[in-house]
Design a protein around this nucleic acid. Sequence first.
DNA 1: TGCAAGATTCTACAACATTAGAACAATAAG
DNA 2: CTTATTGTTCTAATGTTGTAGAATCTTGCA
Lengths: 112, 112
Amino acid sequence: MKLKDYSKIFKALSNEQRLKIFMMIYKNCCAPKGTVVGAEFRIKDESTCCVKGSLDKAFTKICDCMNLSRSTISHHFKELQSAGLITCEREGQTYRCKVNEDVVDSIKDFLK
Amino acid sequence: MKLKDYSKIFKALSNEQRLKIFMMIYKNCCAPKGTVVGAEFRIKDESTCCVKGSLDKAFTKICDCMNLSRSTISHHFKELQSAGLITCEREGQTYRCKVNEDVVDSIKDFLK
DNA sequence: TGCAAGATTCTACAACATTAGAACAATAAG
DNA sequence: CTTATTGTTCTAATGTTGTAGAATCTTGCA
């Protein structure tokens, strides 16, 4: 990964709203590598995150607690995906997100 | 530290030029905590960084290899300082920078 | 088939970021 | 003292980002 890629990752996390979205996903779905998609949403701490009680509908739930328009949130998801931080899949009305832990690891690595 | 503080840190690192400046400082002066200011510039790998051969004049040397105006670089230094990532001191024509490793650590902490 | 709900895309615009240049202040060197 | 060097600040131009709303697409359900 090049410097430009890292700056892109940091840019994706540089907006407070987007960082909040990322952390909501990260803190709830940072399943061990190898976990099948669809099982990612394991609630770790319901008190700190409003994405609760369900494994899917991440988008809608995040919309419900974010006070931003859907289009804006969709845009933020795209930015996070584009930086490689998350991957998203739609399967019908189920919206599944997964944090790309390799990328998170490489940030930590980058910072030595 | 709050979410907003983290987003500010990430914003400081979100610009490629500024990230480059930060890394030049980081890779050359990440001295152990407690090291006195003025002894931070220990060259670790001269081949990957153009800040060479001296402990001070960081500003000038970074200018020399950055292809940006002095005023722009000064501005970038300010952003990095404002985010808490570095501290700078001038003593005459000696410009000394230090990476705030606590902040770097707290990023790593945040991402885990 | 038709309607409702979920998510995306397009458009537009205000706000903010990046940048250089000129003027300046502080220091060093001759 | 004068001149060159170093870094800051101000101003202004240009480019990028964050955001909402309307239109659109996709899926599920009656």
